[in-house]
Computed example of a mutant assay.
Amino acid sequence: MITTKDLTKVYRSRGREVTALDGVDLHVREGEVFGVVGTSGAGKSTLIRCVNMLERPTSGSVTVDGLELTALPGSEHRPGRELREARRRIGMVFQHFNLLSSRTVQENVELPLEIIGADRHDRRRRAAELLDLVGLGEKARSYPSQLSGGQKQRVGIARALAAEPRVLLSDEATSALDPETTRQILALLRDLNRQLGLTVLLITHEMDVIKSVCDSAALMKGGRVVESGALTDLLADGRSRLARDLFPLGDFAAGTASSAGRDRTVLEITFQGDAPAQPFVSQLARTYQIDINILGAAVETIAGRMVGRMRVELPGGHPDNVVPIGYLREQGLQVDVLDPARPHPGADPVTSANGAAA
């Protein structure tokens, strides 16, 4: 539904050049919620503004719903007719709401339809439908100053849906909201994704947003996408930086284990679906009569599935634990053996899930 290829954006000012996007390749599938996460300055906002051509890329291509937007004539300030029509199929939700204070809630939602020349009756009908959809039907005649932050963002979402877009872009839509309101807005975005079949691309700096609402995600750093994919695939990859940020277990080094060196084996175990409900640690201890030290664990619900990661320590070196490790893998668990000599958790696991050298 959304594809960028070798996307570059360079800003030039007073003889200086700043590269905000540096060859970004991204693919968002139809009907999914895709999150782009990264720190400030990573290029997230520039990316989403290039997707709807509020910023025209320096090079590369952007394709949305089968139409290559970068091939259409016009600039971000003077878009041609084809680009204007293409933008109508892309809704945008902003961080700071951008509501007109002199207009009522209903009039704010009607604004995109007014711009494209829809008649008054159709505008009112559509605005009423959308306000009911986002839970603000009773606030139609209120003004933005009379609303809470969460209500203002709901109006912004309704306005973004006015022209019946197939794609919804969210630019840090929850960063100005308190945690409870953030959860409500994210739940609304997920409901709209399911009810309307919307493809949602959101950017955020919060891992909790990725956990709670996204099907897939990409990690940006320095204007580049350094990792991307479906969350379930990333969580099954012992070397995934995104997965480790979603489930932080702290740093692992030789001193972490109760006995450093070859007489201890440290495992990182990733589990999904029904696996977290199984007492595999106690079963392993009873079956093989071994003492297991739990060094860290995190369990979350992601995209409706229970997912987690655990770091455990077994007595004896890796050759002594081949059978117990095999037992864990037979239970459908992702198991990575960590090398105590390496300072970063799982960055270079000794073995991958199938037992091959990583």
Rank of each mutant, 00 (worst) to 15 (best):
R194K: 10
L196E: 05
G197R: 08
T199Q: 09
V200L: 09
L201K: 10
L201H: 10
T204W: 07
T204H: 07
H205L: 00
D208S: 13
V209S: 07
I210E: 09
S212F: 12
V213K: 11
S216P: 08
S216M: 12
A217C: 15
M220Q: 04
K221Y: 15
K221R: 14
G223F: 07
G223K: 09
G223C: 01
R224H: 13
R224P: 08
V225A: 08
V225E: 01
V226I: 14
E227Y: 00
S228G: 07
T232I: 14
D233P: 11
L234I: 04
L235F: 12
L242D: 06
A243D: 04
R244M: 12
R244H: 12
D245V: 06
D245I: 06
L246H: 01
L249A: 06
L249Q: 00
G250F: 03
D251Y: 01
D251G: 15
D251H: 12
G255R: 08
A257C: 10
A257Q: 15
S258R: 14
S259W: 12
T265Y: 01
T265G: 09
T265A: 06
T265M: 04
L267I: 08
I269C: 00
T270H: 12
F271Y: 12
Q272T: 13
D274S: 14
P276K: 05
A277K: 10
A277W: 02
P279Q: 05
V281T: 15
S282R: 06
L284H: 05
L284C: 04
A285P: 03
R286K: 13
R286Q: 13
Y288I: 09
D291P: 10
I292Y: 02
I292W: 01
I292N: 00
N293Q: 09
G296V: 10
G296L: 00
G296C: 09
A297S: 11
T301W: 01
A303G: 13
A303E: 06
R305W: 03
R309W: 00
M310Y: 01
V312H: 02
V312Y: 00
E313P: 08
E313D: 09
L314W: 01
L314F: 04
